[in-house]
Amino acid sequence: MDNTIYRLSGVSKIYRKGNREIPAVRNLDLDIREGEWLAIQGKTGHGKTTLLQLLGGLDHPTHGDIQFAGTDPFAREVRAGSFGFIFQTFNLIPTLSAQENVEAALIPLKIHLSERRQRVLAALESVGLADRAQHLPSELSGGQQQRVAIARALVKDPKVLLADEPTGNLDEDTRDEIIGLIESLWRERGLTLILVSHDSSVVRRAQRIGVMSKGRLTIRQDTRTL
């Protein structure tokens, strides 16, 4: 598979509502290289998030096959170790501090407490929030909450970062700040970044841009060779 990390062949995802079938992803063939940044653009309800969930092993395709770095992407252990998720609504646990929210990502990896704490502080430092480690999400701004979420996604040193509208809930300045942070982390860590957004200013930073329309993905731009 040379440096291809994902290979999707004939992947479809069809939801059923009563007797109705709603195809969210249709017959998708796609290769994603290790370390590339793929942005997926598209209107709401055209299958972007579904595709991201399939790539993150959160859901199984109805048809087709997804290969991921020679492992089963749907295995919990793979999800725990290889994928980092960033969500539009941050999805932080409101009762846990920033530090504890980041630590939650390491719980399935069964890492010793002292190492866990070290990695958490390093992750918070990398997003510039070491001084807010003990703050609850409600005590942080939207941008800060998303930084905590980014730290949570990166603390386990994943192979792939899957970001679903990471700037969707942020103002313009914060959006640029967060997307700049994601981009710099992608470069520093050599991550494979798959980012879903309907915001062109975010998407155009990616190496490859695909557009989802009615469940079909069309690659519009590919700057990987540049």
């Binding site: 999800r79 725990a80 170790g81 990502a105 719980i107 949570r152």
Partner: peptide, 16 residues
């Protein structure tokens, strides 16, 4: 539900 969904996305076992 969203909280538990997030934990599952983070790789938490259902049993946990």
């Amino acid at each position: 539900i969203p909280e538990f969904g997030t934990l599952k996305a983070l790789g938490w076992r259902s049993s946990r």
